[in-house]
Design a protein around this nucleic acid. Structure first.
Length: 306
DNA sequence: AAGACGAAAGTGGTTGA
DNA sequence: TCAACAACTTTCGTCTT
């Protein structure tokens, strides 16, 4: 898809949009001209249509938008202005000014926030779909005035966290925290607040979603990874997973799986990657051994080594 | 000496009165 | 709003390899 812009590098008008990646690329020199895309095409349109539905479903928190809209129609009337005295007219000019300020404030906020969002999400190497979702969530949050009293960055981080969860590519709060320089606590708080206010339903994250990332970070073989997922399956059936932190379970499963395949990693290593402590891994690990009878498999590999 | 293990006390968040 | 509670962490001492 070509768009009406020139490449700043070589001047070619052969620019193409890669929607999956959310990038604009110059076909001639290969430069990635990614800038404008998020702003002007996607979120706005998607948001508008989506928000219509959301509005209808929720009652209370729409006062902010209502107020804004009411103000807009009032100020627009020329005939009214005609009949008013100077003072009244000034009043309307002030209102008009305010309305202008409010809408530009939202826009300016969005611009900054989306830039920050982009930065964090590229730091975490998140797929474009997640980034888009996060932008949508954030836009909704801004329009409902949920950012008030919170830092923009923390809401961005919360939106990203929520988007990750919804797309089943979960990142830990620690990772978000590192990428955004916001405290874990704060992200969690705004995340809960925003999802509650916007009535976004989030499925409890599945430990298996963490496996591929942890596994590759630990340089484990694909076999080990598959085995870990199997273990998680069994663990879920044995009801070992409910109420426990998903990362801890994922880490323990990976640890066991590595032992079985003779690719031993220390508890410390796994713990660091997964963002939990050794103790948690140990607890989950002993539970897994107890309930799933994995001792035999581990012993087998030990013997094979000798 | 490093890793694994377990106990004990502390922390932040949820729940139920 | 407060206290009880479960999960997780921190810290530390002991055992195993």
């Amino acid at each position: 898809m070509a768009i009406g812009k020139k490449c700043p590098e070589c001047g070619s008008v052969n620019l193409f949009v890669n929607r999956d990646k959310g990038e604009v690329i110059c076909k001639d020199c290969g430069l990635v001209v990614e800038d404008k895309m998020v702003d002007f095409s996607q979120e706005w349109r998607e948001f508008e249509s989506d928000e219509g539905e959301k509005k209808r479903r929720t009652g209370a928190p729409m006062t902010y938008t209502q107020y804004d809209q009411g103000l807009g129609t009032e100020v627009g009337r020329k005939s009214d202005l005609y009949q008013l005295g100077g003072k009244e007219r000034n009043k309307f000019f002030r209102l008009r000014k305010w309305q202008y300020r409010i809408s530009t404030a939202i826009e300016r906020n969005l611009k900054l926030a989306l830039a920050e969002l982009k930065r964090v999400s590229s730091y975490l190497k998140l797929p474009a779909s997640v980034e888009e979702e996060a932008a949508r969530i954030y836009t909704m949050a801004v329009q409902r005035g949920l950012v008030r009293g919170r830092s923009m960055e923390s809401v961005v981080a919360g939106a990203l966290y929520a988007a990750c969860r919804r797309h089943e590519v979960p990142r830990t709060l620690d990772e978000l925290s590192e990428a955004s320089n916001i405290e874990k606590k704060e992200i969690g708080r705004t995340y809960r607040f925003v999802t509650r206010e916007l009535q976004i339903t989030i499925l409890p994250s599945n430990p298996a979603d963490y496996i591929p990332r942890f596994s590759s970070a630990l340089k484990l073989s694909p076999d080990t990874q598959t085995k870990a997922v199997e273990i998680l399956d069994k663990a879920q059936k044995a009801e070992l997973t409910s109420g426990r932190g998903p990362t801890g379970i994922a880490a323990a499963a990976l640890y066991v799986s590595a032992l079985i395949h003779g690719e031993k990693r220390t508890q410390r290593e796994v713990a660091d990657i997964a963002g939990v402590t050794e103790v948690t891994i140990r607890n989950r690990y002993t539970e897994l051994l107890d309930k799933l009878k994995l001792e035999k498999e581990i012993k087998k590999t030990k013997k094979r080594k000798k």
